[in-house]
């Protein structure tokens, strides 16, 4: 499988604190890859490095075939990013947000118009296209935010806890979007605190204290750890017996 992310000994130190300790992993094209870990395990640092937002201390890391040290700006154009906290501009309308992000990603005007039509059809929002984002239900915003994050057909989309607080039905619709996107060849790199969602990933990587403790398909990890669910695997890894 073609690799879109390759990390060898990726390390990030903040002073004496090691946030990422020699992480080695790779992610294939069109793969749905989940990154799990307790708060403070180093997930956000890893994502920021891969997005070209944070320079690693050492290690060899390529994202979409580009080097994170030298080609950070080019990486930013080939990825999409969304999180619970950073999403859309609340005081712009739906269409204005699409046009704004289309412009940021450098899409030509006619492509933006076509994309707006496509999105309107897919998410069924044509009748409310001129509503302010702030007036939409939270789950709706998240779906729109995701669709905008992949509007420029990036190689990889990074989703940082995309479904926190979203209702169960919308959460599932969101995962339908993820599967469709991956089927089109866009790699999905996702973090989540919902352990049922970890089961939907093709492979997951579990971090603890800045290190990778396990990587594999949910089925393989459950077998390896003799656990009934990814939740159990997670608890075994993230909270080893004390003392």
């Amino acid at each position: 499988m073609e690799k879109v992310i390759e990390a060898v000994d990726m390390t990030k130190k903040f002073g004496s604190f090691v946030a990422n300790d020699s992480l080695t992993f790779n992610v294939g094209r069109g793969e749905i890859f989940g990154l799990l870990g307790a708060n403070g395990a180093g997930k956000t640092t890893a994502i920021r490095i891969m997005c070209g937002l944070l320079r690693p201390t050492s290690g060899k890391i390529t994202v979409a075939g580009m080097n994170v040290y030298r080609q950070a700006e080019r990486i930013k154009r080939r990825i999409g990013y969304m999180s619970q906290s950073f999403s859309l501009y609340e005081d712009l309308t739906i269409l204005e947000n699409i046009r704004f992000y289309g412009g940021i990603y450098g899409l030509p005007e006619r492509v933006i118009r076509r994309k707006s039509q496509e999105l309107a059809e897919k998410l069924d929002f044509w009748r409310i296209r001129n509503s302010l984002i702030g007036s939409l239900p939270p789950g709706w915003k998240q779906k729109l935010s995701f669709s905008i994050a992949v509007m420029h057909r990036p190689d990889i989309v990074f989703l940082d806890e995309p479904t926190s607080g979203v209702d169960p039905d919308t959460r599932r619709q969101f995962w339908d979007l993820i599967y469709e996107t991956a089927a089109e060849g866009i790699t999905v790199f996702v973090t989540t605190h919902y352990m049922d969602e970890a089961e939907y990933c093709e492979r997951v990587c579990i971090m603890a204290d800045g290190r990778i403790e396990a990587t594999g398909s949910p089925a393989d990890l459950k077998e390896l750890y003799g656990a009934g669910s990814i939740d159990d695997v997670f608890v075994k890894i993230a909270r080893p017996p004390r003392g």
Binding site: G37, A38, N39, A41, Q84, E161, S164, G165, H193, M195, D231, F234, V235, A238, R239
Partner: peptide, 13 residues
Amino acid sequence: DESTTGVDAVSRR
């Protein structure tokens, strides 16, 4: 109110 939002599965336990 929402004391466990965004908190990982282990800390929630």
